[in-house]
Amino acid sequence: MITLSEGVLLDLLSVAILLLTFACLGSKLFDRYVAYYALQSIILSAAIALVAHHLGAWDLWALAVLTFLIKGIGIPVIARHYLIIRLELKRDVAISTGISTSLIIGAVLTAFAYFAINPSTLPSGLLATSPVPLSNAVVLLGGLCMVVRRNTVAQLIGWLIVENGVFLGAITLVATFPFIVEAGIFLDLVAGVLIMLTFVSGLAHRLATTDASELRELRE
């Protein structure tokens, strides 16, 4: 009974993560992007903590705390401070597809993610099954965010959402990943974010815009 309710809770948390991805896809304000991402990361850290509690694994507890501190607080604060406020970003005008259209595409992608994962092939003994297709949906939707948005800051957030999706899948599917790999993945993420932040502010410096549609030097 305990296991069952933990599984149900994990299902709910994953659904919340997916809904926040949709919220991000359906939003046009940079503040909101970051807020949704922060909330999503905090929910993700709760989900990791849940799995950690279930398995009694100390490394997952560490991962949950790290996720909360770095993804839930650190990255959003840095992104807000160094990008949103300093570059005076407010409303995202560089969106290639209409909100409604991209939401519909998102819905289709979600459905696709579900049907790509045949539940009968999922191994028994998973804490919960729905996070697996949900995480795939989050990965696809994060990719969609990156595709429909031309602003580099928005693309960065799309990539961060993709990462969250992968983490969600990882903790349910393969909660017992070797620690060295988990740590490495996390380290890569942090380094990647730092480098991307540098690039974005470099681009902003040089082009006085963070809009990737202005990046057309390389058209041939």
Binding site: L19, S100, I104, A107, T110, Y114, L122, S130
Partner: peptide
Amino acid sequence: GASFLFALIGIVTSYVVG
């Protein structure tokens, strides 16, 4: 559309969770 989306996600979730 949001209402539609909630319902749709609900249905596809049921496909896995049952």
